[in-house]
């Protein structure tokens, strides 16, 4: 599904990713943990092709294609989805028109017809309900005036609408109370599929009680410094990152 080989990337001429390797197979869930400033969000931004994030070395293959050659929108249409750590507010552009444009873009990319508006509305309402967002949110500006938790649930809702192949969740659990966390986790679990993979970036082990990962990686100073099974998350929770970083240095 996704193979990252020796990825190096700069942000504003500063080297942030320093030789990152990762291999994600269809249906797998990978958790990435690590200290603040390690480069976790940078990885998500690089994978989605954000301007200002310059790849200086390495390869990324997504579903057999060279990901780094594609425009941001092409990556999305190919099935890459990034749930942002800090989703932006876009007043004046309604959630509905935004979502419809997204859904149609992916469909047309696959050679399908744009979705019928009525069917689309029905689906959007359904997904809203699934993440416990009031229908009114659909009518509002994208993330406009949403609380932190509502923004995160909106990201999951978009993911459910777009049915991507690979979902990267960047600290989707941060700032959520336990109820909201469960809603998010249920949303993710409902999307688990032998053909869909997840990269779950988190600080907290508690999310992984709900979304059980196949692998846990520690990202520190721009590299994966340790990988293991789900029990690694518990160990990290207990001991912090210090012992690994020191060991890696």
């Amino acid at each position: 599904m996704l193979t990252i080989k020796n990825l190096h990337a700069n942000v504003e001429d500063k080297n942030i990713l320093k030789g990152l390797n990762l291999d994600v197979k269809p249906g797998e869930i990978h958790a990435i943990m690590g200290p603040n400033g390690a480069g976790k969000s940078t990885l998500g931004n690089v994978l989605s092709g954000r301007e200002g994030y310059e790849v200086t070395g390495g390869d990324v293959t997504f579903d057999g294609k060279n990901l780094l050659e594609m425009e941001t929108e092409e990556r999305a249409r190919e099935g890459l989805f990034l749930a942002f750590q800090y989703p932006v507010e876009i007043p004046g552009v309604s959630n509905l028109e935004f979502l419809k444009a997204s859904v149609d873009a992916a469909r047309e990319h696959r050679g399908e017809e744009p979705m019928d508006s009525v069917a689309f509305l029905k689906l959007a309402r359904e997904k809203c309900k699934a993440v416990n967002l009031d229908q009114n949110f659909l009518k509002r500006g994208v993330n406009e005036g949403f609380s932190g938790g509502e923004k995160k649930r909106n990201e999951i809702m978009q993911m459910m609408m777009l049915e991507p192949k690979l979902c990267i969740l960047d600290e989707t659990d941060s700032g959520l109370d336990i109820d909201a966390l469960q809603v998010v986790a249920e949303g993710v679990n409902s999307q688990r599929d032998p053909n869909r993979s997840f990269i779950v970036v988190t600080h907290y082990q508690r999310l992984l009680d709900y979304i059980v990962p196949d692998y846990v990686h520690v990202l520190a100073d721009g590299k994966i410094v340790k990988s293991g099974g789900k029990e690694l998350a518990l160990e990290l929770e207990e001991k912090g990152y210090g012992w690994i970083e020191n060991g890696a240095a």
Partner: peptide
């Protein structure tokens, strides 16, 4: 904002 829209497949 533009990146956000593009990251959802919008040209």
């Amino acid at each position: 904002a533009r990146f956000y829209l593009q990251s959802r497949g919008i040209s």
